[in-house]
C-alpha cells in the first residue's frame, strides 16, 4: 500500500508537526514579548531574560538542576558502562538484570517518585540534593545504558583480542581500545541521561527539600501564580541548552569516527 496515495496524508502530517512545534515556537516568541500578558504581543524585549538572570530563586533552581544533571549523568553513565560490559557475556539471569536496569522506562514515574520518597523517609535521609542525586542516577541508568549496549553489541570482539595479543593487559585494553571504540555510545548515553535528568519533574518534586528546588519544579510552582513571560524565558533557555548539548555530543561522536 502506498501511503502517499491515501487522502489527506500531507495535511495530517502538517497538522501533527504544527501540534508538536507551534506551541514551542510561540513560547520562544513570547519570551521576547515586552508585554506582561502572555497572550498579547506588543514589542520586542529581552527584559524577561534579564529578570530571570537576576532572580535569586531561579539562580538557585538552575544551579541545583545543573549539579543534579551533571552528577546524575556522570554516575549513571559509569554504572551503565559497567553493566553493559558485564552483560556482554551470557550468564544466568542476564535478561532479568537487564529488565531491572531498564525498569524506569516502563514504570510510571509517579510510582518511582512516591516509592523513593517512602524509602528516603523511612531510612531517615534528609530530603534535598543528597536524596535526589541517587534517585536521578537510578532513573537515568536506562537512558545511558541503551546506547552503550547497542554500541557494545556492534563491536568486533576481535579488537580486544588484538589488543591483548599486542601485550595490553585487561585494563590497558579497556583504556586503549574498548573505551575509544565505545566512545560514541558513551557520549550519546551521557547526553541522554543529562537531558533526562534536567527534565525530571516528579522525582525532584517529591524529594526536593528546602533550597533544593530544580528548574522544572520552580516553573511548576511559578505557573500556579499565572503564566508569566519569565517562565517563557526560562523554558527557552532550557530548550536551547538541551538542543546545544545534543548537537555538541553529536558533533563529538562524528569526530571520533
Amino acid at each position: 500500500m502506498n501511503l502517499r496515495r491515501m487522502p489527506f496524508t500531507r495535511e495530517i502530517g502538517w497538522l501533527v508537526l504544527a501540534f508538536l512545534y507551534l506551541p514551542v515556537f510561540i513560547l520562544v516568541l513570547y519570551s521576547f514579548n515586552g508585554n506582561r500578558t502572555a497572550t498579547v504581543w506588543t514589542e520586542f524585549s529581552v527584559k524577561w531574560y534579564a529578570r530571570t538572570f537576576h532572580n535569586p530563586s531561579i539562580q538557585v533552581a538552575a544551579w541545583n538542576s545543573i549539579i543534579l544533571a551533571i552528577t546524575a549523568s556522570f554516575g549513571s553513565t559509569v554504572l551503565a558502562l559497567l553493566a553493559a560490559m558485564a552483560a556482554r557475556h551470557f550468564f544466568k539471569g542476564r535478561s532479568a538484570v537487564e529488565a531491572t536496569l531498564n525498569a524506569p522506562l516502563i514504570l510510571p514515574e509517579i510510582v518511582i517518585a512516591v516509592a523513593t520518597l517512602i524509602l528516603v523517609v523511612s531510612v531517615g535521609v534528609e530530603l534535598g540534593l543528597m536524596s535526589m542525586i541517587p534517585a536521578h542516577v537510578a532513573f537515568c541508568i536506562p537512558f545511558a545504558y541503551l546506547p552503550i549496549r547497542a554500541r557494545i553489541q556492534g563491536m568486533d570482539a576481535g579488537m580486544e583480542e588484538a589488543a591483548m595479543d599486542l601485550y595490553c593487559n585487561r585494563f590497558s585494553t579497556f583504556r586503549r581500545v574498548t573505551l575509544p571504540l565505545l566512545w560514541p555510545g558513551v557520549l550519546a548515553g551521557f547526553t541522554l541521561a543529562f537531558v533526562t535528568s534536567l527534565d525530571l519533574f516528579l522525582v525532584s518534586f517529591f524529594l526536593a527539600g528546602p533550597g533544593s528546588t530544580t528548574l522544572p519544579v520552580y516553573i511548576y510552582s511559578a505557573i500556579k501564580a499565572g503564566i508569566s513571560p519569565e517562565i517563557n524565558a526560562i523554558s527557552t533557555i532550557m530548550l536551547v541548552v538541551s538542543i546545544a548539548l545534543v548537537m555538541v555530543s553529536f558533533a563529538f561522536g562524528r569526530m571520533r569516527r
Binding site: 568486533d156 576481535g158 583480542e161 588484538a162 589488543a163 581500545v177 571504540l181 566512545w183 571520533r256
Partner: peptide
C-alpha cells in the same frame, strides 16, 4: 595476524 585483520579503526 587475524583473519579479519582487526585493525583498530580509531
Amino acid at each position: 595476524v587475524f583473519q579479519s585483520y582487526s585493525l583498530f579503526p580509531h
